[in-house]
Amino acid sequence: MYSKNTGPCSINNCTIPTNRFRIITELAYEKCQKKNMLELYPYLHIGQQLCHSHYCKIIEVDRGQRKSNKKLKKKIVEPTELIDNSNNNTDTVFSSNVKIMTKVLYEQQRRKCADLELDPIKFKNMIEDANPQLKGFFNYMVNTIIPKERSAHNQNEAKKSIVGLCYLIAGLRNKFVNQHKLEVGLYLMASGATWESIDTISTLGYSACAKTVEEYRKKIQKEHVTKIEKHFMENKNILHIYNIDDYHSIHEVRRPDTVSTSLAKHFATCVAKPVNEFPSVPLVFNGIFIHNPLNVEAPRICCSIG
């Protein structure tokens, strides 16, 4: 059983009332030497006792400072806080780039009426040319999402998905950046998807709603007629070779329902190829009307072939 230190305090004229005393050990004496406390108290020796207050002032004079310095060092080198700070900076830059990209894609769709760009290289050049602050953003997305272990072909194919992802992110930030969603919805509608299925996919954020897609389809149809008329008005003096491919597909439904008993498809493909080297054929040439009232004359064709 250890004996209790009962004093007295070895400091001259110590009048501190206490019953707590500490003995000066070899380690405590070395601390005094390192801190130059023996210059103030040269009469202290190993084995003497000090009251608790003088022991803290002489032996452990820098104890509070050592604890605060230790906490400060620990706080500085703590990896989690360094990671958090870097993440905050990364999040800020990423958020800023998404905001800028959304504005660029909005300008491309709503102001410039540009077509949807799905080629990764052209898309990257488009956003970087529109705003130099986006330089490196597309590459950052690619390096973050696509693993380096993939083959070059698979990486190039995955970059196309990154382009679609950029359009989806911009659409989430601004609902009017919906060019990509409209094209997806238009493809679904052309593939025979029902309005309910398109609305379901729209809820997931991958497509526009069916009503918006239908309005977009009617707009394309109306603008297409205008474009065709404008083209022929501007190029009426150039020869055009016009080809019509009329397609019919009528199949019987094996299990007809109360709605339909057959499935018929009909569409016509019209192709007009301009020939810039030749002028257009006049409607009346040498007093002869260009249209043959007899339509197709087999004897003339046979004579020409023979």
Rank of each mutant, 00 (worst) to 15 (best):
T6M: 14
T6G: 06
G7M: 08
P17T: 01
N19C: 02
I23G: 02
I24T: 01
T25E: 01
T25N: 03
E26S: 06
E26T: 08
K31E: 06
L44G: 00
I46G: 02
Q49M: 14
C51A: 10
C51Y: 04
I58P: 02
L72V: 06
K75M: 12
I76C: 07
V77R: 15
P79T: 10
P79E: 12
N88F: 14
T90R: 12
T90H: 10
L105C: 00
K112C: 01
D115G: 01
E117L: 04
E117V: 06
I121D: 01
F123D: 03
F123Y: 00
N125H: 01
M126C: 02
I127P: 04
N131Y: 02
P132H: 01
P132R: 00
Q133P: 01
F137P: 01
T144A: 05
P147D: 05
K148G: 10
H153L: 13
C166D: 06
L168A: 11
Q179T: 08
H180F: 15
L182A: 15
L186M: 13
Y187N: 12
Y187F: 12
S191Q: 12
E196R: 14
S197G: 02
T203G: 05
Y206V: 06
E214T: 13
K222H: 03
F232M: 05
F232K: 00
F232P: 00
N237D: 10
H240I: 08
H240S: 06
I244W: 04
D246W: 08
D246F: 10
H248Y: 13
S249E: 12
H251M: 09
V253S: 09
P256N: 08
T258R: 14
T258D: 15
V259Y: 07
K265C: 14
T269M: 12
V271P: 03
A272P: 05
A272Q: 10
F278A: 11
N286T: 09
G287R: 08
G287I: 15
I290R: 07
N295A: 11
R300P: 00
C303Q: 14
C303E: 09
G306T: 07
